[in-house]
């Protein structure tokens, strides 16, 4: 689809003032989304942006796209429904690590295996920030929080190997510490025909750990490109995904070079095929009345 006028990042910024803590990583994520959407050039009214519950799930409201702030953990089923009902829309889903890998964790595999064409952006801060700093599913083992005074005894979910294991055709990671790179992976995720996942290490300034802040990210992050990683190499992608929690890789971890058809396109195809040669409705009613 071609756009009639050039859109800029500003066109995707809503009048609503974010109520995130000053310095929250999510400010960078929303900026990256504005830039990615401007580069893609679809007007805001052709975009549906779905989220769950949590600090990061406020994000659709800060864009001019159509937003759906749903219930905790349910962004993906709603986003899939929207895309299937109206395949013309560009559909984005977003939320936090609790939304995507704890309460809503059961939806991720099914969204992946259905391969509905949408981009899912998780703002992973390894903590429940909105409820004042409890353990989250990606909290590292040993983390001390208000709900784990002596350190967590549980292993974290690894979002990267989680989605790779279920067959996600596009998997990337980013950090607001490198905004242009983050905008670039989000843009690629949106453009990818199928389920695309971006894990954004988005620091929680209020409850997050020191090494999870922007400054530490700048020192730690390693662009996958500079490591010579080939995004079509699934085995190497899996190997690199094992470093989640110790290394901060940025860029595209895996991109299936041979995308399989998306559920929304398959459904349309079948509809068309089955309606070919079908009798007109009036004729069906006539036959029904005769029998």
């Amino acid at each position: 689809m071609t756009s009639l006028c050039t859109l800029t990042a500003k066109d995707f910024k809503s009048d609503l003032k974010p109520i995130w803590c000053p310095g929250c990583g999510d400010f960078g994520v929303v900026q990256a989304i504005y830039r990615a959407l401007a580069a893609i050039g679809r007007p805001p009214h052709q975009i549906a942006f779905v989220s769950g519950i949590g600090c990061s799930s406020r994000i659709p409201g800060y864009t001019t796209a159509y937003g759906f702030n749903s219930v905790h953990g349910r962004a993906l089923p709603i986003a899939q429904g929207i895309k299937i009902a109206n395949p013309e829309l560009l559909v984005l889903a977003a939320g936090g690590d609790g939304d995507g890998f704890s309460i809503g964790g059961g939806h991720v595999p099914h969204a992946i295996r259905r391969n509905v064409d949408l981009a899912y952006i998780v703002m992973d801060n390894q903590i429940y920030g909105l409820t004042k700093g409890q353990l989250s599913p990606t909290s590292p083992r040993g983390l001390r929080t208000v709900s784990s005074a002596f350190g967590s005894l549980e292993n974290p979910v690894n979002p990267l190997s989680y989605v790779l294991a279920y067959g996600a055709p596009f998997v990337a990671q980013g950090t607001p510490a490198d905004l242009p790179a983050l905008a670039a992976v989000i843009e690629q995720a949106i453009r990818y025909p199928g389920f695309a996942f971006v894990n954004v290490q988005s620091p929680c300034v209020t409850y997050g750990e020191e090494e999870q802040q922007i400054k530490a990210h700048k020192a730690r992050m390693k662009p996958l490109e500079s490591l010579g990683h080939d995004p079509s190499d699934l085995v190497n992608a899996f190997r690199l995904a094992q470093d989640y929690g110790t290394e901060l890789y940025t860029g595209v971890l895996y991109r299936n070079p041979d995308p399989s058809p998306t559920l929304d396109s398959l459904m349309r195809e079948r509809q068309q095929k089955m309606s070919e040669g079908a009798l007109p409705r009036e004729r069906i009613l006539e036959l029904f009345a005769q029998s």
Binding site: G98, I103, Y128, L130, T131, K132, Q134, V146, S147
Partner: peptide, 12 residues
């Protein structure tokens, strides 16, 4: 527990 306000304060 699962954090939700205001039960999260009891959790705490």
């Amino acid at each position: 527990a699962y954090p939700i306000r205001p039960y999260d304060t009891v959790m705490q």
